[in-house]
Amino acid sequence: MKKTERYIYPAVFTYDAGQEIAVVFPDLDVATSGVDDNDALLSARELLGCALYGMEEDNEEIPTPTPLSDITTAKNERAVLVDVYMPSIRMAKVNRSVNRTVTLPAWLNAAALERNINFSQVLQEALMTKIQTNRM
């Protein structure tokens, strides 16, 4: 079965003085917050992706999003649509190892073996430095 590439769900942003912006997804019964609108939206998008990915992995039924026009809000609340692109979420969750064949000069291979260097670890560290990430 083909998985959905993009989900769009309504979220309710609640603004209370002196507090972070609360964000609730009524259809999914999950919540997050942010220090400003941008942070709240990014947190909402991340939460939406995680929640839906978990539901996909558990083979749970994904609820139909409530139309934005059907969301009731209080005076200090705003209903907004939040979207998430699932292929990038799914790939980020994949942390399995894959085999790669590398070619090294014989002298470098011998020197590394002599020093008990873990080839996989060195390659991972070098690649993460090259692409500027610290995810492991």
Rank of each mutant, 00 (worst) to 15 (best):
N118I: 06
P105M: 04
V80W: 02
T133D: 00
G34K: 05
I89S: 04
L42N: 11
W107P: 01
S97K: 14
M128A: 13
N134P: 02
P26T: 06
E114D: 15
A110Q: 09
D70Y: 03
A106G: 07
Y15T: 08
L104E: 03
N59P: 00
A111E: 15
T14S: 15
D36M: 07
E56D: 02
S120D: 02
P105S: 08
N76R: 01
E61P: 00
N38S: 14
F25C: 04
T14P: 03
D27Y: 06
L42R: 12
S88I: 10
E61W: 05
V122I: 15
R78V: 13
R100T: 06
V24R: 04
P26M: 10
A22D: 15
L28I: 10
L41T: 10
F119V: 01
V30P: 03
K130L: 12
Y85W: 12
R96M: 07
V12R: 03
M128E: 13
D36W: 06
P26Q: 06
L48D: 00
S69C: 11
R90S: 02
Y85R: 01
W107V: 10
S33L: 09
T129S: 14
D16G: 06
P10I: 08
N116V: 07
M91Q: 13
S88T: 12
T73G: 03
P87L: 09
V82M: 05
L42C: 09
A111P: 01
F119G: 00
L108F: 04
V23H: 00
E57W: 11
Q121E: 15
I62Q: 09
P65E: 06
R135M: 10
T32V: 04
A110Y: 02
A74P: 01
M128Q: 13
N134Q: 15
E61C: 08
T64R: 14
R135L: 12
T101Y: 01
N76I: 01
